[in-house]
Design a protein around this nucleic acid. Structure first.
Lengths: 382, 382
DNA sequence: TTGAAAGCGGTACCAA
DNA sequence: TTGGTACCGCTTTCAA
């Protein structure tokens, strides 16, 4: 394998000293500093206004001069100054995004969706993280306003139970869109997935697999997605003639440790359970660890299903069933909504609410029927 | 559990119709549009220049007027227009960051480090993702230049083997800093961890645990971090009197599937192996899956260690040893370097290279000594 | 179809 | 210490 030796050698050689690859680096004479539309105007022999029109394909310009301007611009490597343009027509062509944390596949995928949609329309995106901290979220709104963004897209932090900081955004007439973690306490357009239906399907799937004592892991009910998931879970139980028992609903921070504790709690209780539907993937992994530590067999004895389709749900043993939230699609729809708002009615009378469908992903952690068809340790065989 | 019923009820009530919480939403009369320093000047009875000085705590201003201006500004809820300021003094107070993908704990933590350091200094951050796509990286540089950022911080994409797109950044005199995935082919300041030493330690740890036939998973050698990790691995072997065998170095995309394939490859070969040091956590998870599928016992038969301390390395069974790269610290140092550059010499003669130490995290996947002290199935007992 | 000129909201120089 | 003013680069009316 010569290649390896080659690279190893290269390295040693390089360590001896630094190459000056670009001669112009230390070159004292500078290039022409800044190129503006006036330079182009000079070049072509017209005025700056004409150049501006040519560059922004304004209707009132002759094809001939337009062509000349465009060519000259390319020739002298002109780059428009968006800041100047922004100052002039009061549009920064910047979109601010606030997510609890970008360090989640779900959120980063949404951001990707927004980004691609926006970039295609010559808008840039500014990402901020609230870290689920209310104070930070308030500050961030302020920072984005400071940066004069043209619109703000927010997924609310877990601890955000007051919404006064969005008033100034609304008041300034800056388009505001909520996605995923939203609230109904504010009259704001939003893009969400059908959490209710997804939770219903997930619970139903567990029931199909013969589980009957299904616990639910959730977080604060002030956050709508958790309320919706609880409602879906509850309805699925009721529709299958299973008693909804509030004792089976365990609230936590929905992190790894929260999941562990919640599982611990269930194990310690006397009422028994044979499945968990968690509103978070992190919590279900915590539960998985705790259950395995206690020699509980998954999915034979307890079925598990999470929420969000985080990449690691594929890595666990067994692989975890979960709900895919079509993050990219949420992002695209959120961005699309923003563009609808700036092009049409910025604050439509009945608020717009886009509800997307989620996808149930069935993996091993909730599948006991295929291989153990006869195992009927549940009390209510179908 | 009344609380649940409470929330469930609330929901149903709310579904009936939308509340108009903020009366002013549909209020036809608008608030005062934009508040500028001229408004303050008018209010206080001075000129705009004086207001500007007061706001930017310029030395040449009397405490009395300064106080009046500040109070007036607060009273009429003035917000400075950064765009106008940016246009005037040619500084956007924006920093551009390019990472391959933000959807990695490592990168998002770095970004967090940069963000906090920069925000504390009144700079904002613009995050872009290259998705390891060379073309996208080039475009993104252009987009950031377009946005007139004051500096750019980059972690190179996996497929970036040409660096011409950074020339224009350097040429424009915009501070450029590379972090983590860097190159020496460009004379640019950089912040990296000591990959060589970290790899050395990791390999050494495996040897300490009695493993002797240690394979290495790597990616393209053009990326310096992989070269360094390979070098550390190699040196650790040599220093322990173990033959370095290029056959044991397996190259892949370092994703989950790459790891699976590489493990498959090792299993298919005749030369045997009893440990893997992977330069990526994703690849080592892939290997773990493949090995488990083949009933290989971890860590008894094969020891594993990854790189990056991704959160999921804690979730696997067994938990994976890995290398923590102190991402936040990388971020802070990268930002600090930027501020050194804008305050002092933007392109110091000998390039600055900050090298941070990494942390070996030992978990179950590489620990067989504690419990199986007597198991000496290796040929070279220490 | 093109040009002239007035700003967008701050900043910074020069003069007072 | 303050005021007057030109200007950053681009957009956009109004006139020609």
């Amino acid at each position: 394998m010569h290649l390896l030796d080659y690279f190893l050698n290269i390295h040693f050689k390089r360590s001896q000293g630094c190459f000056a690859i670009f001669g112009f680096l230390d070159c004292p004479m500078k290039k022409k500093e800044k190129i503006t539309i006036h330079d182009i105007a000079m070049e072509v022999g017209v005025t700056a206004s004409t150049v501006s029109r040519a560059l922004n394909n304004h209707p009132r310009i002759s094809p001939a001069t337009k062509k000349m301007v465009l060519e000259a611009a390319k020739a002298i490597n002109y780059k428009p100054n968006r800041i100047a343009a922004a100052l002039r027509h009061g549009k920064s062509k910047l979109i601010g995004i606030i997510v609890p944390t970008i360090n989640r596949n779900f959120f980063s995928s949404i951001v990707r969706g927004i980004e691609e949609y926006a970039n295609a329309r010559d808008y840039k995106v500014m990402i901020s993280q609230s870290y689920d901290d209310y104070k930070k979220e308030v500050e961030t709104i302020d920072a984005l306003l400071d940066a004069r963004v043209d619109g703000i897209m927010v997924s609310l932090g877990k601890n955000t139970h007051s919404f006064a900081h969005f008033e100034s955004v609304i008041q300034k007439g800056i388009p505001l869109v909520f996605f995923d973690r939203t609230t109904d306490e504010l009259d704001v357009n939003q893009v969400i997935i059908d959490d209710y239906s997804a939770a219903y399907q997930a619970t139903n799937h567990l029931i199909d697999q013969g589980y009957r004592h299904i616990a639910h892991f959730t977080s604060h009910m002030k956050i709508k997605i958790y309320l919706e998931r609880l409602r879906g879970y509850r309805q699925a139980l009721l529709d299958n003639g299973i008693h909804f028992d509030a004792k089976m609903v365990v609230e936590s921070n929905m992190q790894l440790d929260g999941g562990r504790n919640s599982a611990r709690f269930l194990l310690d209780q006397s009422f028994g359970f044979d499945a968990i539907f968690s509103a978070s993937d992190y919590a279900i992994v915590g539960a998985l660890q705790e259950l395995k530590k206690n020699k509980v067999k998954i999915p034979q004895e307890v079925g598990l299903i999470g929420f969000s389709n985080e990449p690691f749900t594929e890595f666990t043993e067994p692989a975890l069933s979960t709900v895919d939230q079509k993050a990219i699609s949420i992002g695209e729809n959120t961005a699309a909504l923003f563009f609808e708002m700036i092009n049409g009615d910025p604050r439509p009378k009945p608020r717009i609410k886009k509800v997307l469908d989620a996808n149930l992903i069935i993996r091993t952690s909730s599948s006991r029927i295929p291989n153990i068809q006869l195992n009927t340790n549940s009390t209510n065989p179908e």
